[in-house]
Write a protein that binds this DNA or RNA. Sequence first.
DNA 1: CTCATTTCTTGCCATTTGCCAAGTGTAAGC
DNA 2: GCTTACACTTGGCAAATGGCAAGAAATGAG
Lengths: 209, 209
Amino acid sequence: MQFVTFIVLRDTINWQMNKDNLIQFFQDVLPMSAAKAEQLAEKYKAGKIARNGYLLKQGAVCNESHFIEEGIMRTYTYDVEGNDVTTAFYSKKMFPSDLLSFFKRIPSKEYIQALTDCETWYITYEEMQDNFHTIPEFREFGRLNIINQYGILKQRMISMLQETAEQRYLSLIYSNPEVIQNVPLKYIASYLGITDTSLSRIRKDLVRK
Amino acid sequence: MQFVTFIVLRDTINWQMNKDNLIQFFQDVLPMSAAKAEQLAEKYKAGKIARNGYLLKQGAVCNESHFIEEGIMRTYTYDVEGNDVTTAFYSKKMFPSDLLSFFKRIPSKEYIQALTDCETWYITYEEMQDNFHTIPEFREFGRLNIINQYGILKQRMISMLQETAEQRYLSLIYSNPEVIQNVPLKYIASYLGITDTSLSRIRKDLVRK
DNA sequence: CTCATTTCTTGCCATTTGCCAAGTGTAAGC
DNA sequence: GCTTACACTTGGCAAATGGCAAGAAATGAG
C-alpha cells in the first residue's frame, strides 16, 4: 500500500530520486569535495528490485555494485542440510554485493534477495573498472569501501564468538531497527545463528524484563 | 630445541631464507610472470618474532604487512568481561595483519602474537603505498589479497552460523593441523567460540568414535 | 468474506554448552 | 628433588538452545 502511494506521487509530480545519500556516502568514506563526490555519483544509475526479487543468484557472477536508497535486502545460502542461512541484512545506505564474486569474477555462492520493494543506485563491473583507472578518488573509495566491509564482517564474527544470541538480537535492533520491523523472524533467527523457536523465546523473555 | 638447531645451521653454513614461498604466493593470487613476482618479492624484508612476542598491540597502528615463512601466530582481543578471545590463527604462507588498522591508519583493537618463534617477510605501509603507485601488479595483488581475506573471514562466519563446535574443530584440524599441535587448548576453544572445558569434552567424544 | 498459507508462539524433552571446582600430568625454575 | 605454574581432564549442576509438534495469529489469494 505504501509503495502504491509512492508510485502515484512519482507519476503525478514528476518526482525523482536524488543522489544526496550517495554523495554523502562517498564523502563519509573518503574525505573529498562535494564536486568530486557528485562526479563519482554521476556514474551511478537508478535501479529497482521488486519485493522477493533477486539482485544476484547462486552460480551467477555478481556484475553490479548497488547502493540502497530505499528498502531492505538479505543475502543467504543453503547449508549442507539444505537449510536457508541468512548471512546479512542490508538497508538504506548499505552495499549489498558479493565482493568475492564481483572482484574475482567467479560464480557467487549466495543469493541476494529484496525483502521489500527496493530502489538502488548501481554501477556495473566494467564501468567501475573504467572509473578505477581514470579517477584516483574512485579507486581509493573502492579500496576503503572494501576495507570497511571487512571491518563490518569482522565485528560480526567477533560478536558471534563472544556474545549471547540475546545480545546479538539487541545489537541488531539497535543497529538496524528497520530489519526487525519488516523481516520474517526465521530469517532474523538464522542470521543470529539460532532457530526461530529460540528467538521467539528470547523475545518473550525480553518483554518480561 | 628445534629452533636452536636452526640457528646453528644458519651461522654455520651461511644459510638464508629464500623467497620461493612468497614468490609462489604472488603468482597464486594474481597470475604473473616469475620475473614480475620476484620483482614484487624484492620489496619484502626478513623479520623475526620470538615466541610470545607481538607483531601488533592494541592501540597501535598496524604499520607492517607480514607473510609467514615459518611459525604460528594468533590475533586476539578482550571482550567486555575481560576474556581473551582468539579471532584467528595464522601459519605458513598466511598474512597476519589488522587490515582495518593498516589501511585506514587507525589504532588497532587487537593483538597479534607469535605462538612459536616466527620468521616472516614484511613490508611497511609507506613502502606498500609507494609500490601501489608505481607497480600496477602490486596494486592489483593488494586488492585481490584483501578480497581473499574477506572471503576467508566470510567463510569462517558462515561456519559459525551453521556448524556445530565439533564440526568447526574438525575443520580446523583439517585446514590447519599445525595449530592443533602447537597451540594451548584454551586459545583453540575461544577461536571456536566455546570454553576450553567444552572443547576437552568434544575431544573425548571424538576419541570414542 | 473465506480459505489456505505462512508466521509466530508455546510446551515437552533431549542435547549442547557454560560455570565451578577438584584432580592429574607436565614443564620450568630454584 | 621440590615447588610452582600451566595445561588439560573430569564431575556435577545450571542455563541456553534445538527438535518436534500443536495451536494461535497474521497474511495473502480468490
